[in-house]
Amino acid sequence: MSDIAPRELIRLADDEGNSVTVDVLGRAPRWSAGLDAEIVVGTPFVSGRIDLVLSTSKLEAWSDALDRLDAGEDVAWMERSRGPSLFIHLTGERDCPEVVVEDESGSMVTVRVPLVPPDDWLADHRQRLHEVMNHWVPMLSA
Results as ranks from 00 to 15, higher is better:
89 H>V: 08
39 I>V: 15
113 V>F: 02
57 S>R: 10
129 L>S: 06
59 L>R: 07
81 S>A: 14
69 L>Y: 06
72 G>H: 08
71 A>R: 12
126 R>N: 07
54 L>K: 03
43 T>I: 13
38 E>G: 02
59 L>I: 03
36 D>L: 11
114 P>F: 08
104 E>T: 11
100 V>C: 00
51 D>C: 04
71 A>C: 06
102 E>G: 00
74 D>V: 02
94 R>M: 05
112 R>M: 11
43 T>S: 10
124 D>I: 13
123 A>H: 09
80 R>Q: 13
109 V>K: 15
66 L>K: 01
82 R>E: 09
129 L>H: 07
44 P>Q: 00
96 C>F: 03
53 V>E: 06
70 D>N: 15
126 R>G: 13
66 L>V: 09
49 R>H: 14
61 A>T: 08
102 E>L: 05
57 S>M: 07
64 D>V: 11
107 S>W: 10
37 A>F: 05
87 F>Y: 15
95 D>F: 05
117 P>Y: 12
84 P>H: 03
40 V>E: 15
128 R>W: 04
68 R>H: 09
72 G>R: 11
127 Q>D: 14
59 L>Q: 00
84 P>C: 08
43 T>Q: 03
65 A>D: 01
37 A>W: 01
104 E>D: 13
114 P>N: 06
107 S>I: 03
64 D>Q: 09
76 A>N: 07
50 I>F: 06
104 E>A: 15
125 H>W: 02
109 V>Y: 12
114 P>Q: 09
